[in-house]
């Protein structure tokens, strides 16, 4: 299989359809979250919409976190006086129904039972900067500034209009498969900045050019927020160890490309159906008759 054909098949294998169980679950949870926020902030007219990879078209089954933004009008303090108040009030509202995990600007929700099952949903509270309901201030738990200015529409336009959406999806898969600790948003911006944007949306050219930059410029990898270039410090997304790992894994990927081993980077293109998996493992049983028996050190 030619690399381009192989990469297209990989994209197909890792896409997440609207009728997939994962997407249906996300949509159901989104409805519940939206109802809860509208009920708790009934007088505050929040704007609630999808954000993140769902609207940018970069979602893959291996990393399908959904952002739900909940932005409040700029001239109304009913959701909270300050950005921190808004953030805390949304945390408290969500905590009535979910186990909440406060993150930098978002709030991760999990099931309230002891399993704390991950719903793959982050709620992002914020306040519009003016009546145009475009630029938004987000609260930041850590970082140099407590306030972050951003713009969801600019992000969406920047990513989805980049002509590199498919390359971004593959880069996300590469990041997930190597467990590189970099926020998806950061990776998206890196791909747009460093990958060659072929007009034909050539996947191999895009990926190879991206990896070549990472391999050769480990110390010079930087990210700028298109919604506030020069204003938001995104360097916290790129620690030295993350840069180093990006560079090392990029070098490894390029070596594999050179030896024609695309399958080592993204795995085989052909995938065994879920329903067949148990039967196939059973076939291995004779060869694993003396296999180690797993244990757990629990006192």
């Amino acid at each position: 299989m030619e690399p381009e054909e192989y990469l297209k098949q990989i994209l197909k294998n890792h896409s997440i359809g609207d009728d997939s169980p994962e997407m249906k679950r996300l949509q159901e949870t989104r409805k519940d979250v939206e109802s809860l926020i509208r009920e708790k902030f009934a007088d505050c007219s929040p704007t609630i919409r999808y954000g993140g990879s769902k609207v940018k078209g970069t979602m893959i089954i291996d990393a399908y976190d959904l952002d739900i933004v909940s932005y409040f009008p700029h001239d109304d303090t009913c959701a909270g006086e300050t950005l921190k108040d808004i953030y805390d009030n949304v945390v408290n509202a969500l905590a009535e129904q979910y186990y909440v995990e406060p993150r930098r600007s978002a709030i991760r929700i999990r099931s309230k039972d002891s399993t704390h099952e991950d719903f793959h949903i982050d709620v992002v509270p914020g306040r519009f900067t003016d009546d145009t309901k475009s630029d938004t201030f987000l609260y930041q738990l850590d970082g140099e500034k407590e306030r972050l200015k951003t713009n969801l529409d600019v992000h969406i336009a920047h990513i989805s209009g980049s002509g590199l959406v498919d390359v971004i999806q593959l880069a996300k898969l590469w990041k997930v498969r190597n467990s590189i600790d970099l926020k998806t948003f950061g990776l998206e911006l890196l791909v747009i900045k460093y990958a060659t944007n072929s007009k034909k949306n050539h996947l191999e050219i895009g990926l190879v050019s991206f990896w070549e930059y990472l391999r050769d410029n480990s110390d010079n990898i930087t990210i700028e927020d298109p919604a506030n270039p020069g204003g938001n410090d995104l360097s916290v997304l790129l620690s030295d160890s993350t840069k180093s790992l990006l560079s090392m894994f990029a070098k490894n990927a390029l070596n594999l490309v050179e030896s024609g081993s695309w399958e080592s980077i993204f795995g085989p293109a052909e995938v065994i159906e879920e329903a067949e998996k148990a039967v196939i493992v059973e076939r291995f049983a004779p060869s694993y008759s003396n296999a180690p028996k797993p244990w757990l050190g629990r006192k």
Binding site: A278, V281, Y288
Partner: peptide, 21 residues
């Protein structure tokens, strides 16, 4: 392999040890 099997059947296919002592 055993983890894949467990996800489908709730059983460890090649045996397992009890936890701890």
């Amino acid at each position: 392999m055993a983890q894949i099997y467990y996800e489908k059947t709730g059983k460890m296919p090649f045996g397992e040890r009890a936890h701890g002592w």
